[in-house]
Computed example of a mutant assay.
Amino acid sequence: MGTLYVVATPIGNLADLSPRALEVLRSCDLILAEDTRYSKRLLQHYDIHVPLVSYHKFNERSRAAEVLQRLVSEEIKVALISDAGTPCISDPGTEIVRRARELGIPVYGVSGPSAVATAISVSGLPAREFTFLGFLPRKEGELKEVFRSIRERRLSTFVVYESPRRIHHLARALLAEFPQALVCFCCELTKKHERAYWGPIAEVVRQLEADPNAGYGEYTVVVHVEHDPPAATAAPGTGELSLEARLVQVMVERGCSLKEAVAAVAREQGVPRREVYQAALRLRSLVAGKEEEG
Results as ranks from 00 to 15, higher is better:
3 T>A: 14
4 L>G: 09
4 L>R: 11
5 Y>S: 08
6 V>A: 10
8 A>W: 09
8 A>Q: 10
12 G>I: 10
13 N>A: 11
15 A>H: 10
16 D>K: 10
24 V>S: 05
24 V>G: 02
25 L>E: 03
26 R>I: 07
28 C>A: 15
28 C>D: 05
43 L>T: 13
52 L>E: 08
53 V>T: 14
53 V>R: 14
57 K>R: 14
62 S>H: 10
65 A>Q: 15
68 L>P: 02
75 E>S: 15
76 I>N: 08
88 C>G: 04
90 S>N: 15
92 P>I: 09
95 E>K: 12
98 R>Q: 02
103 L>Q: 12
104 G>D: 10
116 V>G: 01
118 T>K: 01
119 A>Y: 02
119 A>H: 01
125 L>D: 01
129 E>T: 12
129 E>Y: 07
131 T>I: 06
133 L>Q: 11
135 F>V: 09
150 I>Q: 05
155 L>F: 06
158 F>G: 00
161 Y>S: 02
167 I>V: 15
173 A>R: 15
178 F>V: 09
179 P>G: 12
179 P>D: 14
181 A>H: 08
182 L>C: 04
189 L>C: 13
191 K>H: 05
192 K>L: 15
192 K>V: 11
193 H>T: 05
200 P>Y: 01
209 E>M: 03
213 N>T: 09
215 G>F: 09
216 Y>I: 05
219 Y>C: 08
228 D>M: 02
229 P>Q: 10
234 A>P: 00
235 A>H: 04
235 A>K: 10
239 G>F: 07
240 E>N: 08
242 S>C: 04
245 A>G: 15
245 A>E: 15
246 R>P: 01
247 L>I: 00
250 V>P: 04
252 V>F: 02
254 R>K: 14
256 C>V: 14
261 A>K: 01
263 A>I: 01
264 A>I: 03
266 A>R: 12
267 R>T: 08
269 Q>P: 03
281 L>I: 07
283 L>N: 01
285 S>F: 00
290 K>D: 10
292 E>Y: 11
294 G>H: 12
